[in-house]
Design a protein around this nucleic acid. Structure first.
Length: 444
RNA sequence: GUCCCCAUCGUCUAGGGGCCCAGGACAUCACCCUUUCACGGUGAAGACACGGGUUCGAAUCCCGUUGGGGACGCCA
């Protein structure tokens, strides 16, 4: 069993991409299969090396490791052989229309209310016609001759599918300049790599029918197909159209945990509860493509943020350590993490509480007399989790204050904030020396 | 424009003619816990897009309307 994730290095990975990558990874992981990362870089105009590196980095950051790697630009011989085989079988034919001519034809068809399908004019060309065109300096692009029949398959997500191929254009497989297009490369590679399952977005469903024909023409057995519903954004628009607006890079910069992203993307679209998980493997047992429907799930950044916070609230220091270090927060005290984690939304928020503990903090003191009295009553060290209530009780008895009146001024003096982790846990970390200074209004 | 697909609480969904005046999860709200907030616990509120059929009975089947998504490239 082998799956592939085949992005084209024409941009950074975005949510829609990693949603597909993740499900491929999970499917292979659960079945004990292999995961191929294949860079579809046949479009030399738009593919760049930087994007190729970026894609790998994004995948690594998410923990989506691949067993195999290749890129289409290195596999030209495979495509040459495939094209020749199709030519020999009479399934590949030369066409001489220019891109402008084709555009015009489509426009005319559309204006007549007809579907913009290639009219196969090139099929009617005689040898003499072709010779004449060649003599004029025209170079052909090559199309695959589709059989005009109904192609059916059982989609792992969508159930029984069929496409009437007489309503499809013969796909161009080779450009005028002799380079190949995705449609051919993809199939040739899938055959060569023995890909058993193609898991991709629903924008490829009609492609599937055409590709099945190419698989068959090439003598390969078509793999199983699974077309996941396309994610839409909050306004209900397709996510894949908005490259860059939700890139992996951007999510990382926002401080989101890779596991939060994975957990969210793994469950969205299914009825399974969206819950934080520690590692990708935890997602394996419940993974099942048949849990998906055909309608588009909404990708909600707020829900992701919420999940991210929830994940952090339970994250032991040992598991946060690496991530903290990666963010330049290697100096975070484990004790601070344990006390503050329930109050953070993003991992870097802990830095604030570290600075509250270690100082310097400029206290907010509204009632100096009260703070001074509290300072006077501050117990001697050693301090522990009981210190806070012993102290506040003493202050209560001495001043007659209670409830919010009592502790809010203390919190503000001690932390310069009016919310935060439990003071009974925070206080011992701050220590007597700093607490004393802050109660006196000094920055410490 | 043509073809394909979809339509249940705010969101993700369960549901395949009576087990459903619709179940779960997330979010929301309330209460509890906590000498605030957050965390945690308990509970509440909240939906079958609309109109016609079929049927003793429809969220479920059929038709239509509306709304949404996708495909139709010498992109992938």
């Amino acid at each position: 069993m082998r799956v592939r994730f085949a992005p084209s290095p024409t941009g950074r990975l975005h949510v829609g991409n990693i949603y597909i990558a993740l499900h491929n990874w999970l499917y292979a992981g659960k079945a004990g299969g292999e995961f191929l990362l294949r860079l579809d870089d046949t479009d030399r105009e738009r593919s760049t090396e930087d994007f190729a590196d970026g894609i790998k980095a994004d995948l690594e950051w998410l923990g989506l490791a691949w067993n195999l790697f290749d890129r289409q630009s290195r596999r030209l011989a495979i495509y040459d052989a495939a094209a020749q085989r199709l030519r020999d079988a009479g399934r590949l034919y030369p066409c001489y229309e220019s891109a402008e001519e084709l555009g015009l034809k489509r426009k005319v068809q559309l204006s007549q209310g007809k579907p913009p399908i290639y009219d196969r004019a090139a099929l009617k060309l005689t040898d003499a016609d072709r010779a004449k065109l060649e003599a004029e300096g025209k170079r052909p692009h090559w199309r695959f001759k589709l059989e005009p029949r109904d192609v059916a398959w059982n989609d792992l997500v969508r159930g029984p599918q069929h496409v009437d191929e007489s309503s499809q254009s013969d796909p161009v497989l080779m450009r005028e300049d002799g380079t190949y297009l995705y449609t051919l490369c993809s199939v040739a590679d899938d055959i060569d790599f023995d890909i058993t399952h193609i898991i991709r977005g629903a924008d490829h469903v009609t492609n599937a029918a055409t590709q099945i024909q190419i698989f068959e023409a090439l003598g390969g057995r078509p793999p199983s197909f699974a077309h996941l519903p396309l994610l839409v954004d909050a306004v209900g628009e397709g996510l894949s159209k908005r490259l860059g607006s939700l890139s992996v890079r951007q999510m990382r910069d926002e401080g989101l945990e890779p596991m939060a992203i994975a957990a969210y993307l793994a469950r969205i679209g299914t009825g399974d509860p969206v819950a934080p998980v520690r590692m990708l493997a935890d997602l394996l047992p419940d993974h099942d493509l048949s849990k998906f429907g055909k309608s588009s799930p909404r990708f909600d950044p707020d829900e992701l943020k919420h999940l991210n916070a929830k994940l952090l609230h339970h994250l032991p220091f040992e598991e946060a350590r690496g991530h903290l270090a990666a963010l330049g927060l290697g100096h975070i005290d484990p004790a601070v993490w344990d006390v503050a984690r329930a109050n953070v939304e993003k991992v870097e928020d802990v830095a604030l509480w570290q600075s509250v503990v270690k100082g310097p903090v400029t206290p907010a003191i509204a009632d100096a007399a009260f703070a001074a009295k509290a300072a006077e009553l501050l117990p001697l060290e050693p301090w522990n989790a009981e210190t806070w209530s012993a102290w506040t009780n003493a202050v209560k008895n001495a001043t007659g204050r209670k409830g919010k009146e009592l502790f809010m001024p203390l919190r503000q003096a001690l932390t310069a904030a009016d919310h935060g982790p439990e003071l009974k846990l925070l206080l011992p970390l701050i220590g007597r020396e700093r607490a004393l200074k802050r109660l006196k209004g000094e920055t410490a």
